[in-house]
């Protein structure tokens, strides 16, 4: 099965996360267990508030689990590291830096010389087709372009694991489709392990080798669905019977959880 024959890259073991809030304790995750394999593309779907972002933040090292642990390459995660990059839904570009400076940001922190950082940054800016906007500030870019910069910035430091939290959630349908196929192209070229959160079931199926469905809060894994559709996947893929079958199945599973939240 896709990805399962390669080594485990990220191991998530019984992860529990509780938040202390003014209204009392909130259990965001209640024992998440699964593995992500080397170079695998995994998508996560689940109703709002089921702990998807929390899980991503824990893998990224921005948040500590209350119980359980996360291993990357067998090493326990204790904080953010250069082996894991994050792309946020709100782009999180530094508004006072140009596109080039944004992409160079992580490279400079790694101690690379200005020249080397610039070379690498330009390579990735080209990869996301923003070579004409190298000197622009984020406020001069559209949402789709901003997210491309954020992706280039994450790629530039060459993390082995790429964590993406609804990166295309704020974009219109056309831009989203385009960025999806660009992302797949670069994923095939650069070989990375991708952990991608989305609300969009079609997006999950078109991108992922496996789709993880989460229960409503407190979050746990409800089901993991193998997407046995070969790459390259295109818009036509969305019309194939297998795609529709998977979509129906995943959608009904997610919908049950939506309903359970509303009750």
């Amino acid at each position: 099965m896709a990805g399962n024959d390669s080594a485990v890259k990220v191991h998530i073991e019984n992860v529990v996360k509780k938040f202390n809030t003014r209204k009392g304790e909130v259990v965001a995750l209640n024992g998440a267990n699964f593995d992500i394999h080397e170079n695998e593309f995994v998508c996560v779907v689940g109703p709002s508030g089921c702990g998807k972002s929390t899980l991503l933040n824990i893998i990224g090292g921005l948040e500590e689990p209350t119980e359980g642990r996360v291993l990357v390459d067998g090493q326990e995660v204790t904080g953010p590291g250069p082996d894991r990059g994050i792309v946020f839904q709100q782009y999180a570009l530094f508004p006072w830096l140009t596109v080039l400076e944004n992409v160079k940001f992580g490279l400079k922190l790694q101690g690379k010389s200005d020249k080397e950082a610039e070379e690498i940054a330009l390579k990735y800016i080209k990869l996301v087709e923003l070579q004409d906007f190298v000197q622009s500030y984020p406020k001069e870019l559209s949402g789709g372009m901003k997210q491309r910069v954020a992706i280039a910035r994450a790629y530039a430091v060459n993390p082995k694991v790429l964590l993406m939290d609804e990166p295309f959630g704020a974009l219109d349908a056309q831009t989203r489709t385009q960025l999806q196929s660009e992302l797949l192209e670069t994923w095939e070229k650069e070989q990375k392990t991708c952990f991608f959160i989305t609300h969009d079931v079609e997006e999950a199926i078109i991108l992922a080798q496996r789709v993880i469905i989460m229960y409503a809060r407190p979050g746990r894994v409800k089901e993991i669905v193998d997407i046995d559709i070969p790459y390259p996947r295109t818009q036509e893929t969305k019309m194939t019977p297998r795609f529709l079958e998977l979509k129906n199945h995943i959608w009904s599973q997610v919908y049950q959880e939506y309903l359970s939240v509303r009750k």
């Binding site: 921005l62 953010p80 946020f88 709100q90 530094f94 940001f105 922190l109 910035r153």
Partner: peptide, 25 residues
Amino acid sequence: DVTLIKAARVLGATQKDIFFKVTIP
């Protein structure tokens, strides 16, 4: 914006980097 601080941390920023390269600007 805390997301900017998170983004910087993920890119390898130390506390000092965050101060000079994120908080100040």
